[in-house]
Nucleic acid binder design. Structure first.
Length: 212
DNA sequence: ATCCCGAGGG
DNA sequence: CCCTCTGGAT
């Protein structure tokens, strides 16, 4: 199947219809809370991130409070999210910079976000689109896989796929489309055994029935 | 065993 | 490009 502009539009229409009302798994809107939650979310379920951050923010709700907590205590607080040494070090350094250079507020500037340790394109895009309500498509493993299988955006790197999705999807739908693709990747278009039989996109998917 | 809404470093 | 970091869920 050759995926034309027309077919891509149909794919987007079905995604929108199927995942209407799909919400971010991480429940935060506040920029700081969201930033920390997304840093914690690597290789960890969103449920656990929500539990862990709730506990953490009850004790240390601000960058200054997390700095005051100290690294060993922070490691202990986030231990059950995995990768805790890296994450604690990154969160601590991020909070220090937030206090020293940004008056304790998360900056809206995309390049400024990217400079924080532990913040890559994916995290910066999530914060940009969810917390600051600006158009961005975060490409994680799900979005990457689904976009490639659909040929909605084909690319070998997350950045290439991000650019492709930006071209294929109207700007005002970028934030929502990110969630459609994530939920579709988690529930239907799974990495190992995709549920093509039950997939509403199968008629417009070039990989239907023979995804790896 | 294998997979998680990654990022940094080599 | 590859590797490492981590615990929990399935």
């Amino acid at each position: 199947m050759r995926v034309t502009k027309k077919i891509k539009e149909e794919q987007i229409r079905i995604l929108e219809q199927t995942y209407l009302g799909a919400k971010p798994a991480l429940k935060f809107r506040n920029p700081f809370d969201l930033l920390i939650a997304v840093i914690l979310s690597a290789q960890c379920t969103d449920k656990r991130v929500n539990v862990t951050t709730a506990r953490l923010f009850a004790k240390a709700p601000t960058p200054a409070a997390i700095v005051a907590l100290g690294l060993p205590q922070l490691e202990e607080e986030i231990r059950d999210c995995g990768l805790f040494r890296n994450k604690a070090k990154n969160i601590m350094a991020t909070c220090v910079t937030l206090c020293e250079q940004y008056g304790g507020e998360v900056p809206e500037d995309y390049d400024a976000l990217l400079k924080f340790p532990g913040v890559g394109r994916k995290t910066a895009n999530v914060v940009t689109s969810i917390a600051f309500h600006r158009p961005a498509i975060a490409v994680d493993t799900h979005v990457f896989r689904v976009a490639n299988r659909l040929h909605l955006a084909v690319g070998e790197t997350p950045l290439a796929v991000e650019r492709g999705l930006q071209r294929a999807i109207p700007k005002e739908k970028w934030s929502d489309a990110h969630h459609w693709l994530i939920w579709h990747g988690r529930r239907v278009c799974k990495a190992r055994r995709p549920l093509c039989e039950a997939c509403p996109l199968a008629p417009v998917c070039p990989s239907a029935g023979h995804a790896e």
